[in-house]
Design a protein around this nucleic acid. Sequence first.
DNA 1: TACAAATCATTTGTGTTAGAATCAACGAAG
DNA 2: CTTCGTTGATTCTAACACAAATGATTTGTA
Lengths: 172, 172
Amino acid sequence: MKEMSPTRRDQEIADVLDNIRRVFRVVHRYSKRAEKIGGLTGPQVWAMKVLAESAPIRVTDLARRMYLHPSTVVGILDRLEQHAQVTRTRSEKDHRVVTVSLTAKGRETVAKVPRIAQGLLLNGLKGLPESDLSTVSEGLRMLVGILGVEGMPPPLLLSPEVNVTGVNIGDP
Amino acid sequence: MKEMSPTRRDQEIADVLDNIRRVFRVVHRYSKRAEKIGGLTGPQVWAMKVLAESAPIRVTDLARRMYLHPSTVVGILDRLEQHAQVTRTRSEKDHRVVTVSLTAKGRETVAKVPRIAQGLLLNGLKGLPESDLSTVSEGLRMLVGILGVEGMPPPLLLSPEVNVTGVNIGDP
DNA sequence: TACAAATCATTTGTGTTAGAATCAACGAAG
DNA sequence: CTTCGTTGATTCTAACACAAATGATTTGTA
């Protein structure tokens, strides 16, 4: 690429940080208020989707998949349990372990989610020309590299189903 | 842009969403625990920096600059006031307005911050080859475009000083 | 002037997030 | 078998974050 004066480079870095800020705010807000399927919040729906995919699952594993601290997930599960969306079962083999599953009601809820969750980002990305998508993809890969979290957590499965899940997460 | 089967494309979109999630989490955590200058949290330091730049300022304007809800800022100001870092003054002209300023102690605190706040992201970006920086920049610009927030808020100044602030914002 | 609408800060209520400490239970070493 | 370290879930505390409602004040309008 062409040469760039230090000043212009600084400007570009400033722009990057500025844009990160913007994306974060939007994604963050979106995740806060969006969703609300059946009175559930973003993180709650997100947990439900992970459960739909791999229940029964231990609390710790659920936390890992959600990139969250176990104590955070406990709170989310408390609320979901109150709404009768999930159940907790103490494992027989290892009494330290608690297994989380969806209730019938929970499965209904999850079934209703996908189409509604067609978020801004997912639709936007879908409509992007291949070359632009590559640019976005590359750029983010580099950011992740900078932050040193490429392999972050168990990459989850990558089925189309999960893509949708990803969106909520975003805002996920 | 080589041709890409629908499946591969879906995969790439999934990756993008996954990476946004990762960057989001990392930056968020970073802003949460990092900083802690003089016992202050990330958002608190962030508010201090905005104040350093444009105090005295009204609560609403401070909130706008931080991309936060006013009620959130009230809490942050409560805590900063307890630590004697800022003061609140009811305006004479308009009795609805409260003006926030830094105390002497607050100015000292701010003076200590900048060098420590050379964050992961800023340093990482600085070390990036020009071509890679362009890719990151381009990709983010597209994301911002998708989200329709190009002009989002008063872009703040773009001095190096503010860039540092930008990092905190991330977590914002 | 009077009254309605808008503005500003705050309070209240709910939810998300993390770290530290706690408690039970498992597993391995002696 | 007993002790010791580890793991797993939870509780507690503290900070964010937002929406909705409140109360005080200003502004615009009839």
